[in-house]
């Protein structure tokens, strides 16, 4: 019996494998920028992260007696790439290995593999590392050309942060995670995704909107004195909103659901940035909203055509 419901039919007719490789291509400029800014150590992190994601996936597939060719769908590679982009450039080699374990095993395979996971695997890995080894995960490296080699705080740090010009923030001339610093490079990738029609823009736009409005209202000393542009450019907002909050599997299906999802992410991000103990809240916010997705889907489902009977 076939039942047609408004559920997981993705708007474009791209295969999931092709999408994975297109997104990876779109992420390429940000990676090049990261390596250019922080040096070859970032390339090492990216390589270890991607390789160990693939290895963990192969190991688990063997353990479950499944076809090892599943690994070619590219999702493990993409997870590894995104995980590396969320790490500081100078972490010890075992950090991406453990992060890849958390991403692939905890975040994806225990739920049944690609398409079944509830949480974004790369973010599971990142948050696992952030909670486990907070020191490594917040030791930043200055750009190669900086005069003082002492590692500094990111622009978002609660204390000890110096102010950056918008241009520095836009080009990535400051400490941060490998893939999130250079907004220019990320935007090139986003343009590519617009061109190939891979991601939908409801989530990122509502995400940015919420963050900017709330940053403007509450971000400053008094009310309506905050700096929305700063909150847009600093930290991992662009990377998170375009490349991780838009993940097909872990975000809502409907347009309305996507907007609610984005607003929720924005709300939590700004709450953690302004009031929380951590400097950056994007990954926690998206992870939290991932948990809300089944609920959001439940209440935003379009019920017009083909009312599917309850139960299967």
């Amino acid at each position: 019996m076939f039942r047609v419901s408004p559920a997981p039919h993705i708007k474009s007719n791209l295969s999931s494998r092709k999408i994975m490789y297109l997104v990876m291509l779109a992420l390429l400029p940000a990676g090049i920028a990261g390596v250019y800014i922080y040096g070859l150590c970032s390339l090492k992190v990216i390589f270890i992260s991607m390789a160990s994601c693939v290895l963990w996936e192969l190991l688990f597939l063997k353990f479950r007696h499944k076809d090892p060719r599943i690994v070619l769908d590219g999702s493990a590679l993409l997870t590894g790439l995104l995980l590396a982009y969320n790490l500081p450039p100078e972490v010890p080699f075992w950090i991406p290995v453990v992060g890849a374990w958390a991403s692939i095993i905890l975040g994806k395979q225990l739920f049944g593999g690609l398409g079944h996971n509830i949480f974004n695997p790369a973010l599971v890995g990142r948050v696992f590392l952030q909670i486990s080894w907070p020191v490594y995960m917040t030791t930043w490296k200055n750009p190669r050309w900086a005069l003082d080699s002492v590692s500094t705080a990111t622009p978002l740090a609660k204390e000890g942060a110096r102010s950056f010009s918008y241009i520095d923030l836009f080009l990535g001339n400051h400490g941060g995670c490998i893939g999130e610093v250079c907004i220019l490079a990320l935007l090139i990738g986003v343009l590519f995704l617009i061109f190939t029609n891979v991601i939908s823009f409801h989530t990122p736009l509502s995400f940015f909107g919420t963050v900017m409005v709330l940053a403007w209202i509450f971000g400053g000393k008094g009310i309506f004195q905050g700096d929305p542009i700063f909150h847009l450019l600093a930290g991992g907002l662009i990377l998170g909103a375009f490349f991780m909050a838009t993940d097909y599997v872990t975000s809502p299906l409907t347009r309305r659901g996507k907007i609610i999802f984005g607003i929720g992410c924005g709300l939590l991000t700004i709450l953690i940035r302004l009031k929380g103990g951590y400097p950056e809240g994007v990954s926690y916010a998206i992870l939290f909203m991932n948990a809300m997705v089944p609920m959001i889907d439940r209440y935003t489902k379009t019920r017009k055509y083909g009312l599917v009977k309850k139960g299967r």
Partner: peptide, 30 residues
């Protein structure tokens, strides 16, 4: 979902709870 057989039921529920708990760690130090 295609959860591995030995993880079905309680074990996967605990894993989900663990991941939710990680997300809730973001609220630390408010």
């Amino acid at each position: 979902c295609n959860v591995p057989r030995s993880m079905k039921g309680m074990p996967i529920a605990f894993i989900v709870a663990s991941l939710m708990s990680m997300a809730f760690m973001g609220f630390m130090g408010f």
